[in-house]
């Protein structure tokens, strides 16, 4: 995939569409897989002994947070590559940015589905559990990252600032998670969310869950390809806009 992304980034011609034959096929695959997942999750997979139908939220909840983690890891890897690379290709920065955007979206979905499930199962939208609290911090941290990407400045400045910030987030998140755990462990008995480790899943449920992970991963790759091409076009447009403006001033000066 990396090779493919690079090829798009360094091409000088300005592409007017973000789609290619490959992404269209990938998009179609994502739609098919998500449809199958919906059928599996809503109809075929059995109800849970204790939770009844509410367990079906899991097939969306778990894959969304999985995709979000994957996205943030990719952001960190691309940021590190950008900073360490000799040529400092902005392509890495755009993939990092696109990935973080999708990550934020999926964390939001995960928090939303989680709180809906919590409302039905625990009777409350939110508990001050270590994992939930850390996830909320993860969400806010990357909203901050996206805000930094939108700051004034050149594309290089944006890339450097946001890469450093993405790497700082990698440090910050374990620290926050560790301290929140410490905070909870001394102030509240182990909460409901951490008690779910010894749950036995039915085979079909397990299959649906893994199928969900695969379906959402395909969706992630598809979104990522489009989004980073979109960012490439935006960057190209803003550079072209500047070139055109300089050209216009030059003409005025000559006249």
């Amino acid at each position: 995939m990396a090779v493919r992304l690079r090829a798009v980034n360094i091409s000088t011609e300005t592409r007017l569409s973000t789609g290619t034959v490959a992404t269209r096929r990938l998009g179609a695959l994502a739609i098919v897989m998500l449809t199958v997942l919906a059928v599996l999750a809503l109809i075929i997979s059995p109800e849970d002994v204790n939770q009844g139908s509410t367990v079906r939220i899991m097939y969306v909840h778990v894959p969304t947070i999985w995709v979000a983690y994957m996205a943030f890891i990719l952001t960190a890897v691309c940021s590190a590559t950008y900073l360490s690379g000799r040529n400092r290709s902005l392509g890495w920065d755009r993939v990092a940015g696109a990935s973080a955007e999708i990550g934020v979206l999926f964390v939001a979905l995960s928090l939303l589905t989680g709180s809906l499930w919590g409302r039905i199962t625990w009777g409350t939208y939110w508990v001050w559990d270590a994992r939930l609290t850390s996830t909320a911090f993860l969400f806010i941290t990357y909203i901050g990252y996206l805000a930094v990407r939108r700051l004034d400045g050149t594309q290089r400045q944006r890339a450097r600032r946001s890469s450093v910030l993405a790497l700082l987030a990698v440090l910050e998140i374990p620290l926050v998670h560790f301290s929140v755990r410490l905070w909870r462990s001394l102030h509240q008995e182990a909460s409901v969310a951490t008690g779910g480790t010894d749950v036995e899943l039915d085979d079909l449920m397990l299959f649906s869950l893994f199928f969900g992970l695969a379906a959402f991963s395909v969706l992630f790759v598809w979104l990522l390809l489009h989004r980073q091409r979109m960012l490439y076009l935006e960057d190209a447009m803003s550079s072209q806009g500047l070139d055109a403006a300089i050209e216009a001033r030059r003409k005025e000066a000559v006249r």
Binding site: F137, I140, T141, I143, G144, A147, V148, L165, L168, E172, L175, V176, F178, S179, V180
Partner: peptide, 10 residues
């Protein structure tokens, strides 16, 4: 504040 407050939570 958006950047700093989450970091200083610990």
């Amino acid at each position: 504040p958006l950047l700093l407050l989450p970091v200083v939570a610990p």
